[in-house]
């Protein structure tokens, strides 16, 4: 099962983004100097120009990668984790537990994500941790649905029946048999959730609810809009952050689609049709 071209592209993009992350830890001297004049267009001393308070845009861009990537990945982890848990419980135990979980999933699917997150974030206050929490708590339904479908498939299969016949406990079955067989979907779901998480985080920061101590790319966009960079025509302050978000999202999407495809094929081959 080889890696397709799109996946390779995805990995390339991802590596370049991670490169940015690594570079962000370089000491100050490597970046453009903080200048006295704001809104300087790109020049040798400031490769991406300066923003409204004279800071080097490139520096901010690299630093922004830290928050955007980590929040994106961590919140996707939380969301996928919750979704997998609920999906497995719902699919395996069935009955009223299943009905309850499905209603819950449908409920969360209907409630508009971003507005709800905005409300919660407004209450909890702008912090790194709160953003992760808010995204994680609201973005699990998509995963839960898909994981549940797979869990149901496994739970109804002959070998699980056989396991019950041998006398295996339900917890044992879930941990040793259901979870491993669900892992593939969960992984692909995780990778595909990251881009949504990154864009959501950027959205929250854009509206002003991001953590000011951990500025992300979204925060950069926020400042570009509210502090007048846009109106000054200083395109270098906001085009790069947006592009970075796009590249990162694309990277994860491409890789995620690749994983999903390969998983589907491997499931087909593992479960031979008669």
């Amino acid at each position: 099962m080889g890696t397709s071209r799109t996946e390779i592209l995805g990995f390339l993009l991802l590596s370049s983004v991670f490169l940015m992350l690594i570079f962000s830890f370089l000491p100050e001297e490597y970046f453009g100097k903080k200048s006295q004049s704001p809104y300087l267009p790109p020049s040798p001393s400031n490769p991406l120009g300066t923003n409204d308070i004279g800071e080097d845009v490139l520096k901010n861009l690299l630093i922004g990668s830290r928050a955007s990537l980590t929040i994106g990945i961590l919140s996707a982890l939380v969301a996928t984790g919750i979704g997998t848990l609920i999906g497995v419980i719902s699919g395996f135990f069935g009955g009223r537990i299943d009905e309850f979980c499905r209603s819950l999933t449908d409920l969360f699917l209907v409630i508009p994500g971003l507005p709800m997150m905005i409300v919660l974030a407004a209450y909890l206050g702008p912090s790194y941790f709160n953003v992760i929490l808010v995204i994680g708590l609201l973005w699990w339904p998509a995963t839960a649905r898909i994981v549940r479908a797979r869990a149901v498939q496994i739970a109804n299969s002959a070998f699980v029946e056989g396991l019950i016949a041998i006398g295996a406990g339900r917890g044992y079955i879930v941990i040793k048999h259901i979870l491993p067989n669900v892992y593939g979907v969960a992984l692909s779901r995780f990778v595909l959730t990251v881009p949504s998480a990154i864009i959501l985080e950027a959205g929250l920061s854009f509206i002003g609810l991001g953590d000011p101590r951990n500025p992300s790319w979204g925060t950069a966009l926020h400042f570009a809009l509210t502090r007048g960079a846009l109106l000054h025509g200083a395109w270098w302050t906001f085009i790069p952050p947006g592009l970075c978000i796009a590249i990162t999202s694309l990277a994860f999407l491409l890789i995620g689609f690749g994983i999903e495809k390969r998983y589907r094929e491997s499931v087909k081959s593992m479960e031979r049709s008669l």
């Binding site: 002959a158 029946e161 056989g162 016949a165 041998i166 067989n181 008669l274």
Partner: peptide, 27 residues
């Protein structure tokens, strides 16, 4: 003991046959 009708998922597709057969002993 009960042996079900033949099906695709008669045994855990991720486990080696040896382990699947050993499972009852281990449990």
């Amino acid at each position: 003991q009960y042996v079900p009708q033949y099906s695709d998922l008669a045994l855990d597709p991720l486990w080696h046959i040896y382990d699947s057969i050993a499972e009852p002993l281990r449990i």
